Simulated assay, not measured.
Amino acid sequence: MRVGVVRNPKSYRNRRDMPWVTAPDNVLFAKPKTKAALTEALTSFAEAGVDRLVLDGGDGTVRDVLTRLPATFGARIPLLAVTPSGKTNVLAEDLGVAPDWSVEAAVGRILDPAAPRQVRPCIDVVREDGSLRRGFVFGTGAYVRATRLAQSAHRMGAFGTASVALTLAMSVVQSIAGRDDRGWRAGEVMQLARGGKAEARARFLVIASTLERLPLGLKPFGAERPGLKSLTIDAPPRLLLAALGPLWRGTEPAWLARAGYVRGEGDFKIALDGEFVLDGEAYPGGELTVSAGPALEFVT
């Protein structure tokens, strides 16, 4: 067994705390500061026979590593562990990883054959040209605006669950206020197809995830369950205040879908001119296929 540790030196916790373990010879370390350096590190890990990866960073670090695994490790996906060192650690929270879980503890656990494991498929976002990005939370429309608000919350000193709570509160205020024909409430025209003909209309928000438990107990997709799940909200959002309860608790009142709040399962295609966000980072829109990726094993 060989372990590779990818430590993001730019992650929130790692900028303040940089101790290194005294590791056995079968543990390799990398502290890549650029995307190119990350690719080089993963390539060297694969060539060295690494079959276990500890990802020391936030959700963005996980996204960047998973996106590069096909080009560096090929079809051989290593066993994974995540230490929550970023400003947002939604994946780690879903897996039940303690906020203070250290690299030392993760290395010890991932080398233990009897350590408990959990499986989560990632999301594959593929463009028309075949380029791939992998993550766990996809969103567009109001989700892009909310991500920018989250960055403001970080500047205010709110991180993790506190950041999610503050961002959600600010997003609700922005979504209720204002006119239907401009700003948040106007939404964005996009084409969405789920196994059939694409339908173009203004949508306030589209969000999808393969995670099972979201921060604050939010259940926008309904009951907690595995697999790729999505929520689409038409623009302008109707009965938004009334819908907050069902979207938080995961209930399914009969009026919810009629009001334009549609929950879905499985893969879909989406085309949009605006941006989309994958695990906290915004990318240009286009014609995209959003699907469940390979099942990944995480030591917890």
Rank of each mutant, 00 (worst) to 15 (best):
L168I: 09
R155S: 03
A41H: 01
G157P: 02
E40D: 15
M170P: 00
A41K: 00
G196D: 15
P116R: 15
K35F: 09
D180R: 11
L239K: 14
E297T: 14
V137M: 07
A223R: 15
R145W: 04
G227T: 11
L28D: 13
A165T: 10
S102D: 05
K219L: 15
T83A: 02
D64Y: 14
T167D: 13
R238I: 09
A259F: 04
V3W: 02
R15W: 01
L132E: 14
A23E: 00
D112H: 06
A142E: 02
F73K: 00
L79C: 03
G130V: 03
E104V: 07
D180W: 06
V172P: 03
S152V: 11
L42M: 07
R225K: 13
F276T: 02
D112R: 07
P220E: 05
D279Q: 05
D64K: 10
D94W: 02
L149E: 13
D100M: 08
G160C: 04
R182H: 11
V126P: 00
E93P: 01
V137T: 15
L272K: 03
I207D: 08
V27A: 04
A105L: 02
F159N: 02
L79H: 03
P99I: 02
V3Q: 01
K10Y: 09
T39K: 11
R117I: 00
V277I: 09
I123G: 00
P226W: 02
V137S: 10
L168C: 07
I270M: 04
W101E: 08
L288I: 01
G183M: 02
P32C: 13
W101M: 01
R155H: 01
G130E: 08
T34N: 10
T72M: 04
R127C: 00
A75H: 08
P32M: 13
A30G: 03
V21A: 11
A105Q: 08
V206F: 03
P294N: 15
G250A: 12
N14Y: 02
A198D: 07
V21K: 04
V27P: 13
A115C: 01
A193V: 02
D100Y: 07
N8L: 05
H154V: 02
P220F: 12
P19S: 12
L166F: 07
